[in-house]
Every structure is written in structure tokens, then in C-alpha cells.
Design a protein around this nucleic acid. Structure first.
Lengths: 346, 346
DNA sequence: TATTTTTGTTCAAACGTTGAAACAAATATA
DNA sequence: TATATTTGTTTCAACGTTTGAACAAAAATA
């Protein structure tokens, strides 16, 4: 009972009086091995409760069949469903997934990368921490020749495959919808513009306003980290302006929620007085009252494409496939917080 | 640029004109190696950008320094913060963490266990899927002599270490609080009683009612999977009863949220007409209006203790330490949904 | 100075699996 | 019947690291 010796390929070989090599080949269904031997090996393997030693085969084959996934925070529907999908696609192909959380910290992200490299992962799929500006550790991955796929939060300069949504177009969808509702003064609670995705949302917001002939006022665009507190603070700020907005487009759902709280505390009707739109379609947006209109990023789709792109790279490591920048369409989910009655009557 | 050969211990040895074995010993700070050699090795290792091959050392040492963590769903604050803490504690000791999601499915759980065993993890920390009744795969882990720690959702019969909160006592805290608010007819939206933790919450609820001399009515205890839809359905059911409850204690926050929605739709004042308490203290409980009273399970604490318990098992694998059933205290976080004004006036 | 101990290193085998090459036996082709 | 091909297996080295044993040289003890 004390020290259970694990059964190895050698044990099976001994039982059958054949060579370990023959057993190995039988297990991997090598064409040159007779069916008789194969079934015998399988039988004994089962009897002895044989489990292949991944470490040994990985070492020998120079391939671990492990893929690392780095995310800022598992604690969000967006990321957890992406992971779920990545796992699904990769497991299918015999890969196992190691998940590492950066907790939005550059330091933790570097540590995670080192840990994954140490574990000899065959590839890495990552979404960068908000904090990350230096790309040295990502360069390190590249320099080791390990395939790297970025999603959602990715830097252009890195020159690696990227999967994300069309943030620019998403802003257009939002503004178009708000304009249809009759809104004329649309504020934007923005993310920090040093991050590409937030920069694109801002750009989309500005261009869409211009397209619809609405004025662009800098006082209506305020950057933040998009947390709930930021949403509250900025909404208060907006309400203090002499010329209040009649709609607020937040680049994140938590910021939108904070804004909603402030609006309700001030007895401002949503959407009648001020319409509200968020971004990411976190589950709570449909749970609060009024439910919040938001942008669905089709996370499963992002996860699927990211995983498939990685598989492609793993299958043909030397092939000089041109870089993939995969930009998926997002979808506006219209809910109570922006659906004015006027619209229902029409 | 094409195929970067990784530097091995052998390369370092060649440069210095010594043996790979000496290099290995130098790197692991073996006492018999001279300081001169050690610094030289470290220097060259750095120059050549040497990264130890985890696979090889794991194979040789029979230890992977990998720990598997199985959770039902990363998409919840409770589990994601537990993981964060587990990672923190284990990384400290040189372990890396592989996370697997069961998505509450028994099948996926089995697959995850196989994947982890295949990867040769040194230990496993797990919280079981709701669906899981058969324990064969967990027995498999035990039979391989791999340390197993369960947390939150664990079965008693398995005879392994367990970390969780005192569900029985938690129900007492809830009922005590509601009684203090003057509630006399307290309903319980329960989890399925085949799961130990929900059974204990039900038991605690009954015993507490008895303790305070309140009647126990079976029509007020309804089991469910605690999703938001279940919360809605059951709340509706409760409202249809001739003798309505004046408080509802849900064994999960999502069920509580569903209940809250129905109460608001029926213009029933919370907490004045019916007080409401949830369980798990998901972040949204403080975000909705009114904010929902809930039970905080101190997830970081659970994660910390689970990780530390595993470390103990890993350090002394043969030691026949008695089983640890660690039951941590929970805390009632009182919010608007149950704080009647009467209390504030006093 | 002779002997023991310590110090620093090398040797060789091992961890479990794999795959190219070698080989013998069986079968097919000439 | 002689030769070529196919089939099923074994041999052997390798993947990169670790470790106990062996060994020589240096230092300490007698």
C-alpha cells in the first residue's frame, strides 16, 4: 500500500515477453505491429492499469502538449467563457491547457510567462494586463520560437497573431442606436487611450458622431479605468455640467453600472432622460433594473479562433504564414436602458 | 533564425570544459562544488540564456512540481479568488498550478482528472461539480497515491482532507439576523439536499428556527439548483401561498437575485414587506438595488488553507497524518435587503 | 613522512518513452 | 528455385537532467 510502483511500458513488455519498443509502437498503433500484438498489449495495459508517462514522452518527443493561457482575471464572464472554449478546442487535439492569471499586474504577468516557459508549453495564448506597457517578456516568448497568439488586449507592435473584435465598428453600432433613439448629446465614459482597444472605441465614437452630424465635445469624453467607482464619479461630473448629455456610452459594463446608480440616486429616468449603453455584456447587465444595453463580444468565438490559430501555428511551425489579425464583429444587445418608448410606439 | 537550439546543461559544460554533472550540481548549489565553479556556471548560464528543462528534471526526479486545481466554474468571484490564493501559496514553494474547469459536468470532471493525472501532477485540489455523485475518478486519484484536497463541495465518504465553511452555523447567523429584524415566517430557497453543503444549510435553517421558537413548515423549504430562474420561479410560488413569508433566505446569491426581481415586479417592498438574504457574497449583491445581504465565505482563506494542507501532504507523503477537516467560520454581510428601518431607529 | 580526511570533480546509470535502423522470417515476384 | 518485397520485431541510442559511487588531488592529522 505504501509506495505503489507505477506500471511502465517495460512491465507490459515483460508480461508479454516482447520488447518495450514493440509495446510503445503497439500503443501508438504503429502499422508494422501485428493486430495480435496490439490487442494483447492493450489488454495487459488495461489489466495493469497502465498510464503513459507524459513527462517521458514529452521529453523524448520534444513536445509537451501543454498550452498556456494568460488572462488578466478569470473572474469575468468574458474571460472564463473564452477559456472554456479554448480548452474545448485544444483538448480535442490532445493538448492540455494551463491557465495563469496576471491579476492585471505586469509583475505577475512576467512571472506567469516564466512559469509557462519553464513548464515547456508548446504555445501561449494571452490577453495582456492593463498595466503592461513593456513587451520584453512577450519578446522572450517569441525569441524562444514558441507560438504566441494574443486576444482582446494585444499590442500591434509585437507582430504576432491577434484575435479580437472590431472596437471601432462597435462604437458605430452604439452611436447609431442612440441616434435612432433620438439622442443628440452623447457622452463617452472611455477607457485609457493608451490601450489600443479603448483608443479604437474612442475613435469610433468620434467618427460616428461626426457621421451623424453631432457635435464632438471634449468635455463629454472622459477616460478612466472603467471600474464601478469611476463610472459613479464621471457620471456625477457629467450631471454637474450646465449642458447635460441625453445619453452615456460607457466603454465597460462596470462603469455603466456605476453611472446607472448615480442616475437613479438623482431620480433621473433611464432611458427617457438619459439613455445608457455599456460594453462587454457582462451577465449582470441583464440582471439589474433597468437592464443595460451592451456590446456582446462573442467570447466563445474569440476563444475558438484563438485556439484554432494556435493549432495552425503548431502544426506548421516553419511555414511562414502571414500574420493573422482576426477582427470579429461584435453585436449590440439592446435592453431597457436605451430603448426609449418612442421606439416601441413606431 | 529558423530552429533555435535550446541551450542545455551540456552546452555550459562544454564551454567551461567540465562535466554536465558538475554543472547540474553547481546549479543546484551542491556543497561539494567549489564557489569558483559555481559562479562560472551561473555566469555562462546567463550568457547562453540557459533555461532548465523541466520535463527532464521532472522525469528524473519523479516529481513534476505541478499541482492541478479543479473547479466547477472560474466565472465566479468565489472560485476565482480561491484560485488566486492557491496559486500565490504554491508558486511561493516552486509549484505551478494547472486549472481545470468541470463546468458542473461529471463527464468533463472525469476528463479533467485524467488530463491532470496524465500531466503527472504532484497533487490535486478540487471542488466537485454539482452533478457529481459517483466518486470513482476521485478514488482513482487516491489509488495512485496522489494527495487530494477537497474544498467547498466535498464528499465525506472519500476520506480525504477537506476545507470549507461551517454551513450549519452560517444558517444560524442568517436566521438570527432575520429574527432580530422581526421576521417570523422565514422561507428557504434551498440547494439540492443530496449535496452536503446544502443539506447542512437546510439543517441549520431548521434548527435555528426551532431554537427561536418559530414554526417549521415544509411548504417554505424548496430545493432547486439555485440559478436565477429557480429563484424567480420559487419566489412566485411563495407569493401564491395564502400565508406569505416575511423573509426569504436563499442558499445562493443568484436565486436571491431572481427572488428580488419577482418581488420588485410585484411592488413588494424589500426589506419592509419581505426581507431577503443570499449566500456566497457574489460581487453583484452589493451592486443591485437594494443591495442584498449575503454570507461571505472568505474564499482567500479557503484557498490559503487548501494550498497549505496540500503542501503538508506533499512534504511528508508517508506520514499518516490524521485527516484534516478544516471548517472555517463564515460571516454575514448585512445589506439593505434585510435591514429593516426599525433596527436603525433603535 | 605516512596515513587519513576532505574537497572537487568525473563516471555511469537511470527516469520512461520513442524512432531510425537492423534484422530475420514470411510472402510475393521473377 | 532464386531474388525481391513485405511484415513483425528487436536493437540501440537518444531526449536533458540527476545522483550515488568512484576517483584523484589537496589538506589535515598522525
Amino acid at each position: 500500500m505504501a509506495t505503489k510502483k507505477k506500471t511502465t511500458i517495460k512491465d507490459i513488455a515483460n508480461v508479454l515477453g516482447i520488447t518495450p519498443s514493440a509495446v510503445s509502437k503497439a500503443l501508438s498503433n504503429h502499422p508494422r505491429i501485428s493486430d495480435k500484438t496490439k490487442t494483447a498489449v492493450l489488454q495487459i495495459a488495461q489489466n495493469l492499469n497502465y498510464q503513459p508517462n507524459h513527462l517521458a514522452s514529452a521529453l523524448r518527443k520534444g513536445k509537451s502538449n501543454l498550452v498556456g493561457v494568460i488572462i488578466p482575471k478569470a473572474n469575468s464572464h468574458f474571460f472564463s467563457s473564452i477559456i472554456e472554449k479554448i480548452e474545448e478546442v485544444l483538448n480535442e487535439k490532445g493538448y492540455n491547457v494551463i491557465i495563469a492569471q496576471s491579476n492585471e499586474s505586469y509583475n505577475k504577468e512576467c512571472k506567469s510567462i516564466d512559469a509557462l516557459l519553464y513548464t515547456q508549453v508548446d504555445g501561449i495564448i494571452a490577453s495582456m494586463a492593463n498595466e503592461t506597457v513593456k513587451l520584453d517578456y512577450y519578446e522572450k516568448i517569441k525569441s524562444k520560437g514558441i507560438p504566441l497568439i494574443l486576444f482582446d488586449r494585444g499590442e500591434n507592435d509585437l507582430n504576432v497573431d491577434y484575435v479580437g473584435i472590431d472596437d471601432y465598428l462597435s462604437s458605430h453600432l452604439v452611436i447609431e442606436h442612440l441616434v435612432e433613439q433620438g439622442c443628440k448629446r452623447i457622452a463617452h465614459i472611455a477607457g485609457f487611450s493608451h490601450t489600443r482597444i479603448y483608443k479604437n472605441r474612442i475613435r469610433g465614437y468620434r467618427d460616428a458622431l461626426e457621421k451623424f452630424g453631432l457635435p464632438i465635445e471634449d468635455s463629454l469624453i472622459i477616460e478612466s479605468n472603467l471600474g464601478i467607482e469611476d463610472g459613479r464619479r464621471i457620471m456625477q461630473q457629467l450631471l454637474e455640467q450646465k449642458n447635460k448629455p441625453d445619453a452615456v456610452y460607457a466603454a465597460g459594463d462596470y462603469a455603466a453600472l456605476g453611472a446607472l446608480q448615480v442616475l437613479q440616486e438623482n431620480h433621473i429616468n433611464v432611458p427617457e432622460d438619459i439613455a445608457l449603453v455599456g460594453f462587454t455584456n457582462e451577465p449582470f447587465t441583464s440582471l439589474v433594473t433597468p437592464s443595460i444595453t451592451s456590446v456582446e463580444q462573442h467570447s466563445e468565438q474569440i476563444g475558438k479562433v484563438a485556439a484554432e490559430t494556435l493549432l495552425k501555428r503548431l502544426d506548421s511551425p516553419n511555414e511562414k504564414v502571414s500574420l493573422n489579425k482576426l477582427i470579429l464583429p461584435a453585436e449590440l444587445i439592446i435592453r431597457s436602458s436605451s430603448k426609449k418608448l418612442i421606439n416601441n410606439i413606431l
